[in-house]
Amino acid sequence: MEEGLRILPQILISGLVIGFLYAVVALGYTMVYGVLEFINFAHSEIFMFGAFIGFEVLMFLQKTSLLTTLPMVISLILTMLAAMIFSGALGWTVERLAYRPLRGAPRLVPLISAIGVSFFLQDAARIIWEALRGNWQLAVPPLYTGVLTMGPWQVAGAPLQLQVPYGAIVIMVSGLIMMFSLIWFVNKTKVGKAMRAVAQDRSTAALMGVNVDRIISTTFVIGGALGGAAGSLFAIRYTSITPYIGFILGVKAFTAAVFGGIGNLAGAVIGGLLLGIFEALGTAYLGPLTHGALKGPEYKDIFAFLILILVLVFKPAGLLGRTVGEKV
């Protein structure tokens, strides 16, 4: 028990880091859901493409040895920017080609199309990078690979030290910046207000002179850009990427969005952070709690799913959401 408590701060940090990624991706799900009441299944693949574009930028920087000569933060910004632009454009394209023709169709129709897009993009990435690099499992050039060591402090008679990778700090800082920018954008700018108006009442927004199609496109571009940024951060922090990194992470980020209250930006952030922390705790302590019978890391992906079911059964509106029941 004593030993378990001592690793707790370290676990919380790693949970928080992955939680920030969930949160940023969840923002994309929740924005689209808020505006269209539809799960953008392909969002996880837009995240994944962000990781691959980030990888390509880093490879380029490495090849031109700019990676070592440029200040790290410039490399980081270049990487994230490229990923955001590409993923934003991808989000726009997907909406235009696969979702817009289906607006007004029964709910399952765009959902099935979105699943199709997700599969298509996943396999497309595999094909592209297999052709480009001969392999779809790629090692990302190093950026922010150092570790910040804090402490040691004397806690309960023994030294306690915290290891925080720089990559983790990068994720948390840029995550915070993106979240606050988005919340400011949606609440304070004219386009942001139009976005909320479209989410609440599409035809009345049109009567106010809002070009609804353009606002929906904007939503997909912003959501996609955030997903792309998260993807590039994932690549930097976890240094190995495949076309399949989006799938499970996407399900979890969606869970985070539902957990926080779908359609609610702050909810998505809180949901993401909490989910990351729960998952880290579960992964670390399942083994010890079952005396080694069950291996925590093996069952890691189940925690998010359990939370999803529990939330949907007991509090479908989520932590901060309003009720989105079937309309009667």
């Binding site: 207000k193 909320r196 108006a197 609440q200 009442d201 035809s203 009345t204 927004a205 009567l207």
Partner: peptide
């Protein structure tokens, strides 16, 4: 018809 105020603005 029915005013259609944006309820959460």
């Amino acid at each position: 018809e029915g005013r259609r105020i944006f309820p959460r603005l």
